[in-house]
């Protein structure tokens, strides 16, 4: 097998938060021991509820912030030991699309200028070459090249997200990190953007990291899934496998809680819900962090933190004492 395009080993992140006005400073473990690989050309979805560390992980992977511990290799190069010029090159290889294009595009710059900026900073292309590249990229994302003169507010939500995707692709990155790219969009537009992402992935040979809370979207787009709960990876493996036969109880609950657009099926699974709320990441329970909400919890779960382990012949890893 070729070297994975991205390899994370034991990534950790902690933040120091002030507990109230005169409160004690506390450590928040946003991410604990995240290890996974992303193969070239595949798409990996990171799934979990708010506060589970999805976005922290994305910020570390895109080198917006360094991890507190652990190593990250992009195309076989360890970012911790690279020189600043290597880092600059690596940063162009991994680009991000954010949730709400209204907030991620500068409202005072025209679409053309927004798309031109990465080229101005990172390449030595002439003005004419840049203009050509912008026009061709707009076309690739299904927009009229004439829209380069518009400001973001003159575009619809779907068009804005297309611009954000175009901006991410201007430097021909190897990896695209998409943080909830369709959750702010209407259903009819959401389908257009999902189609576009799949198309672009093929055309540009992109590896994609897709952060989402919506399992129906994940099912549609991802090859592999990584389920997170309270800063830890609880289950990872092939998307089709996991969604059909979840092994971690939390994954099961997540699937059961996702509304199904089919009245007959929806009514069957009505009562499969989960009681309680996720505990605060500031004071996670001892042992398995899911044990207080888990139907399978036993004495062992209260004391011992489950490690990610293989439970069957597939590539799936599960962090649960009771999985088999």
């Amino acid at each position: 097998m070729s070297t994975p395009v991205l390899e994370a080993k034991g990534l950790r992140q902690t933040y120091v938060v002030q507990g109230g006005l005169f409160g004690k400073r506390k450590r928040l473990h946003a991410l604990r021991e995240a290890s996974f690989t992303l193969e070239a050309g595949s798409s990996l979805a990171i799934v979990g509820e708010s506060g589970c560390g999805k976005t922290t992980l994305a910020r570390i992977l895109t080198m917006i912030e360094p991890p507190a511990d652990g190593s990250l290799c992009i195309r076989g190069i360890d970012i911790a030991t690279s020189t600043s010029s290597q880092l600059r090159e690596l940063r162009t290889q991994i680009q991000m699309v954010f949730q709400d294009p209204k907030n991620s595009l500068n409202p005072r710059r025209r679409v053309g200028a927004i798309l031109e900026e990465p080229l101005v900073i990172n390449t030595k292309l002439s003005k004419a070459e840049r203009a050509e590249k912008i026009a061709s990229m707009l076309e690739q994302v299904g927009m009229d090249a004439g829209l380069a003169d518009r400001f973001p507010h003159m575009l619809s939500g779907g068009q804005r997200q297309r611009v954000a995707i175009a901006r991410a692709l201007m430097l021909n990155p190897a990896i695209l990190v998409a943080d909830e790219p369709v959750s702010a969009l209407d259903i009819s537009v959401q389908a257009q953007i999902l189609n576009l992402l799949a198309e672009l992935q093929q055309r540009f040979q992109l590896s994609m990291l897709f952060i989402s809370h919506d399992l129906s979207v994940v099912k549609h787009i991802a090859d592999e899934i990584l389920v997170m709960y309270l800063g830890r990876i609880v289950e990872t493996g092939k998307a089709a496998d996991i969604l059909a036969r979840p092994k971690h109880p939390y994954t099961g609950v997540l699937i059961a809680s996702t509304p199904v657009a089919d009245p007959a099926r929806a009514r069957e699974k009505r009562e499969a819900g989960l009681a309680g709320e996720p505990p605060s990441p500031l004071s996670p329970p001892p042992g398995c962090s899911f044990h207080r909400r888990c139907p399978l919890a036993s004495e062992r779960c209260r004391g011992e933190i489950p490690r990610l382990r293989r439970v069957d012949a597939s590539s799936r890893l599960v962090a649960c004492h009771h999985a088999d």
């Binding site: 537009v189 389908a191 189609n195």
Partner: peptide, 24 residues
Amino acid sequence: KALLEALPDRAPAHGHLPAIPGTV
């Protein structure tokens, strides 16, 4: 009909989603 067909939920995995062209 188009709205229901555009749901990733009801489409085959990894297939092309029958999106509604244009915008509201």
